[in-house]
Simulated scan of single mutants.
Amino acid sequence: ALLDLVFNDLDSPWAVEIIRGVEEVAHEAEVGTVVSANHDRVGAARQWMTNLRARASDGVILVTSVLEPGLHDELRRLGVPLVVIDPAGSPATDAPTVGATNWAGGMAATGHLLGLGHRRIGFIEGPPRLLCSRARLDGYRAALDVAGVPVEDELVVPGDFYHESGFTGCNRLLDLSDPPTAVFAASDQMALGAIEALRRRGLRVPEDMSVVGFDDLPEVRWSAPPLTTVRQPLSDMGKLAARAVLDLARDVAPASPRIELATELVVRASTGAPREV
């Protein structure tokens, strides 16, 4: 028996966390795991489908990856069950999904900074095509709204979840005539990029600017300073998706078509009160 686990790309530490969860469940069930990445390459999904047919996969787990609708139909025809982790855009399937409470996480991160006394809070967003990115941004806006702090467009800058865009985004915020006193980055990698941008300008975290990330990747405990972030239970998401797809392969319907796991704020040393002006 085989499970297929498909990512858009594998150059992210959070992919490893999801693989770990899927592997644990597959190992217990004595099922093999095939991991692949389609990198948005033209024809990659078709090629993958051909390989999938050849190896007679028992189930597919898609991670923030968009498959053309035609391929969904093909999986259905082959009778191969599908589960989606953190759907990117509205999934064009009736497939069960496993996600995290991104909106609540965005609200908790921003609420934490507001509670410390910050009023100008920058936000570095993730790719807008991903539902998780949009939900984190909505959580940020909602927290400001509840606190009666106006949402300013200039404080929201684009990012793509990777280090470089956090670095660039933070520099953009620092170049504003009235820069923010805190930054919430929609991923840990962007938060680390932001900390590097501050370091290169001789600014200290959190004395000169507070930084919050999102994910709680293993390495952020070792950043300087250790990062305040929103923990996503990534390996648990992998475990649940693997269990759901194995159930479907045995014709057992999942308990719920949409599972959302709780995120939680982890406060470390990268956040503090704004400097007295």
Rank of each mutant, 00 (worst) to 15 (best):
G70N: 09
V230Y: 03
V277W: 10
A135C: 11
S210V: 08
R200S: 10
E68M: 00
D94W: 11
I18R: 04
H118M: 07
L240I: 15
N38W: 04
V266M: 14
D175A: 11
T263D: 11
P233D: 12
G126H: 05
L246M: 07
V205I: 04
E260Q: 14
G115Q: 13
R53I: 11
Q232D: 12
A186T: 06
N8D: 15
R231L: 13
I19T: 08
D153S: 15
V98K: 06
R55T: 12
R250M: 09
M107F: 15
L240S: 13
E260G: 13
S65W: 02
R129G: 13
L217Y: 03
T97Y: 05
V183T: 08
S235F: 04
V156C: 08
A1K: 14
G117F: 01
W48N: 00
I18H: 07
V211L: 05
A242V: 11
G43L: 11
G59Y: 09
E74A: 08
N38I: 13
R134K: 11
V230P: 08
A244P: 05
G105H: 04
T33H: 12
I18N: 07
P233W: 03
V211T: 01
A241Q: 08
A186R: 06
L137W: 04
V277L: 15
L62D: 01
A241N: 03
A44D: 02
M190K: 08
N102I: 04
G166V: 09
I259E: 13
R119T: 11
F214I: 09
S270L: 05
L173M: 09
A269S: 15
V205P: 02
D216S: 11
S177L: 12
I195R: 01
V151A: 09
